[in-house]
Amino acid sequence: MRSRTPSGMRLVNLLLSGWTGLVFLFLYLPIVLLVVYSFNASRLAIVWEGFTFRWYEQLWHEFTAHLADERRSALIESMGNSVIIAAATTGLSVLLGTAGGWLLHRYRFPALRTISTLIFIPMIIPEIIMGISLLIFFKTVEMELGFATVIISHVTFCFPFVLVAVQARLAGLDPSLEEAAMDLGATPLKAFWHVMVPYLLPAIISGALMSFTLSMDELIVTYFTRGPKSETLPIKVYGMAKVGLNPLLNTISTVFIVGTAMLVICAELLKGTARRSREPG
C-alpha cells in the first residue's frame, strides 16, 4: 500500500529527523574527534599530522614500567586508585542496594515509604552540594580524608541504582516463588540463596555495572572527599588538562570511553534478559 501521510505530516517528520540528526552530531562529534586525535602524530592536540599508535605505546610503557616498579607514574597510579575505589564502591553498593530493595519489598510499613524516597536524593542532588556536605560531615566526625571517605561518598549515590534495579525486579516477583522453595524443603536462608539471588542476579549485575561506571568517572564529589594518596583518574586527567592539551589525554580518554561503553552495553543487555525472564513463569 502507498503511504498516504498528509504532506504537512511529512514536513514535520522531516524537521524532526533533521533536528535529531543535529543533536546526535553535536553529542558524538566531539567524542569522535577525541578518538581520532588519539591517533594523531602531532604533539599539539589539534593539528592533524598523520596516523600513529605512538601515544598508545607510550601509555603502555608507562603502565608496564609502573607495574615493574621501574618508574613511578602518577597517571597509572591514579588509574589503579580509580579501579580500587570503583570496585569497593560496587561491592558495597550491591550489598546495600540488594538488602535495601529486599527489605523495602518485604516490609511495606509507612515509614519505609519516606525512607525509600530519601534514598534517591543522592541520585538527583547537585554533585557540588553532595561534595561539600560530605566534606563537612567527614570533618565533623574527624575522619581522615582518603580511600575510605571517597568510597563512602561514592556508595551514597551508587547504591540507589542497585536498589532501584532490584526493586523493579521484585515488583514482578510471584510471591509464591519463595514459598515454593520452602515447600520443597529449603530453609528460608537456602530459599533466598537458591531462588531469590538467581532471580535478582540480572538486576544486581546491571546495578553493579552502573555503580562501577559512575564511580569510575566521578569528579566533583571525589574532588572534595579525596585525600593526598587517593587521587583518582578523572582528577588526574582534569589536572593534566589544565596544564595543556596532551595527546596522552586523548588516548586515556579513548580507553576510558571504550571501557565505559562496554560496561553500559553489558548492563543494557542484562536488563533485556531480566525483562524477558520476568514474563509469567
Partner: peptide, 28 residues
C-alpha cells in the same frame, strides 16, 4: 513447611524462572 512431608502445587505454579524443567523438578 520445610520440615513437613507435604508438598503443594501452587495456583500460579510458582516455577523457578531461572531453572530448567529438569532443575525445577530436581530442586526438592
Amino acid at each position: 513447611p520445610y520440615r513437613r512431608d507435604v508438598n503443594q502445587v501452587f495456583q500460579s505454579y510458582a516455577l523457578f524462572p531461572h531453572m530448567t524443567v529438569q532443575e525445577n523438578i530436581a530442586f526438592g
